[in-house]
């Protein structure tokens, strides 16, 4: 019976996770050629070796990890207080606040990023407001700042939702007990609230960090030219250099690099007991 219930899950994993990854692995081991499709099947490790040893690619990987780390920390700094606040409001308002967090998903991702272009560009809404109140215009489009705004905007809900769900399940009487026994609010937070919320926090951090590392669209549309990201490097290898094996090798390594934090997140303390 259990196998029967799990069958769709396995079918899904095979079709949409294992099969594409295998396809990428096959192409990563092929040799680029002037043919249709532009590679010849082989068992050549050249592209994988190149991907691991070439410093240019390392810059790409490190650039993406830097962006992912900064974005994830920023999401945590903004998202934790929001999640806590939502978890502590009365049930009536909580539903409404959660709905507001989810609301942006009702419109298309590209549409929302394009809307940010309208807000951030030189002649956009933000600068119109700034100049109306007498502040000098700022150039935000095509800068790292715009890219981080876009990423944090898009991924914040992924941090808030699991975190809020964990926080709202907390037993408030434990915090009251700690306070009654003389703990300051900071101590209560550090020793009671925070440890309980860790599983939700780790889930949220992974949900932000992993996709942002592979993020290609937001840096491309909002970001400036100053950061080389692995997403851009892979796109360049694929579209500019027509080197599908090299692009696949990089994608494969990125996939492997992202499985690690996912595994760590899974092993993270399940917490809850004090």
């Amino acid at each position: 019976m259990r196998t029967l219930f799990l069958a769709p899950l396995w079918a899904w994993l095979t079709l949409f996770v294992a099969a594409p990854a295998l396809l990428i692995a096959v192409i990563a081991l092929a040799i680029p050629a002037d043919t249709v499709p532009p590679f010849r099947l082989a068992l050549a490790p050249d592209a994988l070796i190149q991907a691991l040893t070439d410093s240019f690619y390392w810059h790409g990987f490190l650039g993406s990890l830097r962006i992912a780390a900064i974005s994830t920390l920023a999401c945590l700094a903004i998202g934790y207080p929001m999640a806590l606040a939502i978890a502590r409001t009365s049930a009536r308002w909580r539903g409404l606040l959660l709905a507001i967090v989810i609301l942006p998903f009702w419109s298309g991702f590209l549409l929302r990023i394009t809307a940010w272009i309208g807000i951030l560009r030189d002649e956009g809404y933000l600068n119109a407001i700034l100049s109306a109140v007498g502040i000098a215009k700022i150039q935000l489009m095509n800068t790292d700042a715009a890219m981080f705004i876009g990423i944090i905007y898009c991924y914040l809900p992924f941090l808030i939702l699991p975190l809020e769900s964990r926080l709202s399940s907390a037993d408030r009487s434990l915090e009251q007990a700690a306070a009654d026994l003389g703990a300051t609010p900071v101590r209560v937070f550090v020793h009671v609230t925070l440890p309980h919320s860790l599983p939700g926090m780790f889930a949220g951090l992974a949900l932000v960090f992993i996709p942002v590392t592979g993020e290609y669209v937001i840096p491309e549309l909002l970001g400036g030219p100053s950061s080389i990201t692995i997403g851009r490097v892979i796109a360049d290898e694929f579209f500019n250099n027509n080197d599908w094996p090299q692009a696949s090798a990089l994608a494969l390594i990125l996939l492997a690099a992202l499985v690690l934090p996912a595994t760590i997140a899974r092993r993270a303390p399940r917490g809850g007991r004090i």
Partner: peptide
Amino acid sequence: TRARSRMWARLKS
């Protein structure tokens, strides 16, 4: 082509 696209990426960054 690869040398050009790398130079280009360096220039942009």
